[in-house]
Nucleic acid binder design. Sequence first.
DNA 1: TCTTGGCACTGTCCGTATGCGAGTGCCAAT
DNA 2: ATTGGCACTCGCATACGGACAGTGCCAAGA
Lengths: 337, 337
Amino acid sequence: MSRKLEVLRAIVEDYVATEEPVGSKSLAERHALGVSPATIRNDMALLEEEGFITQPHTSAGRVPTDKGYRLFVDRLAGVKPLSGAERRAIESFLEGAVDLDDVIGRTVRLLSQITRQVAVVQYPSLTRSTVRHIELVNLGTRRVMIVLITDTGRVEQRILDAKEEVSDIMLGELRARVNALCVGKRLNELPDLLISVAPRTDKEDHVLSSLVVSTILEMAIEQSEERIVLSGTANLARLGTDFSHSVRPVLEALEEQVVLLRLLGDAAESMTVRIGHEHELHSLQGTSLVATGYGRAGEPVGTMGILGPTRMDYPGSIASVRAVAQYVGHFLTESGS
Amino acid sequence: MSRKLEVLRAIVEDYVATEEPVGSKSLAERHALGVSPATIRNDMALLEEEGFITQPHTSAGRVPTDKGYRLFVDRLAGVKPLSGAERRAIESFLEGAVDLDDVIGRTVRLLSQITRQVAVVQYPSLTRSTVRHIELVNLGTRRVMIVLITDTGRVEQRILDAKEEVSDIMLGELRARVNALCVGKRLNELPDLLISVAPRTDKEDHVLSSLVVSTILEMAIEQSEERIVLSGTANLARLGTDFSHSVRPVLEALEEQVVLLRLLGDAAESMTVRIGHEHELHSLQGTSLVATGYGRAGEPVGTMGILGPTRMDYPGSIASVRAVAQYVGHFLTESGS
DNA sequence: TCTTGGCACTGTCCGTATGCGAGTGCCAAT
DNA sequence: ATTGGCACTCGCATACGGACAGTGCCAAGA
């Protein structure tokens, strides 16, 4: 690798470690580059021309630009093995999780803890899951509860108001029919499948069955039900000391579910790193996202990641996110609860 | 009311409005106290002796102390009627909520929005709710799902691993027995009631029924299942500009469920205001809490409130919290879904 | 052609000095 | 009890100057 790139790598590493602009002299000291500060200055001048680094003011050291970080993660970052403590933390953290809420909750705390950044975890997406069971419960007083259970352990319920009293027999038939049709299918296939249910039924329970069917469809389709949880917002302190100008807008953005969804949206496929201005959203342009899908290999059911300042430890973050995602993926597909 | 208290009231109001220490001259101008600045200075000297106000430095205006705020909310704060916009916001915000999650989510956003503070809402407490229905669902492959539905619309589910295949008939019997016993009862009565279930059953389903019973008990008792949601953390900007020293510790505290529970713990009965050092937790001593219970009148099912800087608009916050709590209370007990 | 030591230059940071203004406390007069 | 007057005290903003870190450039050496 050319020395110029070696210098860039050194700059990124030092800047991430010290949080201060790095100068030619300290670079020469801390890294065994085998050349003098003057030579490094020449390289730095080139790197600056090409837009990989910049200086905050004339007589200061250099700081990587977003473009510099991009080059770093794409070509210069080695894989950083997890520390023993981290590996142990990951393995013990999910022990004893009782249900999906619990798993997701522990995961997001774990991620924010080991990366010391804001962690973002999306629940297993409904549309990418398959139906394990649909239960219809007669609550009496004309109410019916519909419970939708997915293979990823996600449980959605909705209570609907039937117009008239509901007979258990009718409900039982409907339940059997719906389950026979839906179990094992992906949720986004349901609309096509369920369309056939309503017409086939007797006139008597027509009202009920169409109500039930339409409610199930609502539950299956409704994108707004994509849930995302956050943790570690206190770590946003790393963004800087001027709360109102750097942290506040980020905090505001993170409170919008829509923003979060868009943020994680296209990270599902593989490990994704989005740096600074690569975010569409203006208020996030001081931050970087490291995210990946989790779940069945090659067919992720959800996304998780961390958000931190562009000046972050990319190799470490990538390693942590990948490890946690893999572990949670195994956990979900094995025990399935 | 004595003029001295009038002066204190004026100081609190001005300080809350301007966020700046208030001096005798501007006080005399802005409020029709009918006396000269010099007189006000005398009163202020007395108030300072008694510990109600203080000056940040020798030649600055006065700022209320926690003790001053306390006196203000206890004896000096009038009731501030809600603005039309606020009333309208409250009434329209809960329209179209589909389930309890939705109601709580909308509530917490609403509260943080109209008070412009951090809002905290506790889910209807399990122990204070009554059982509407308990459903046992046979998922096949030796799994049984238990769904617990409360009168407040809260739905808890847990999946348990029976040691052997479960017959629908057995499950049906068990379901009937459990429901007959529990429906309409408060969750904290369940332990006493359920203790009688296991022994009475045949040997055959003994294992299953005791498993089910113990799981239901877990669900009913487990304090860790008290859920609390937050919104509006971006509003913590109002605490000050030095993130690390004022905002960060608060954010950290708010991420701990335990802390939140303790925070809302004794606010259930009636409108509670906790100011600055009245908090046990050191990191919250720059903040004030305004909280109240909500639910059936005289018998709250949960707690909600807002957290902001001690320098906050108490009358306004109290009015908003009370109004939202009442509205949500009605909403939950009426529609019950 | 690449590397290196030397050197002048530039901007930040920090401590000190200084003037201004807001606000107080006290006192004598009403 | 209230008031006007007045000296006093700080905090804040501004300006200044020196130390410092780091650069760009150049001429010499490999």
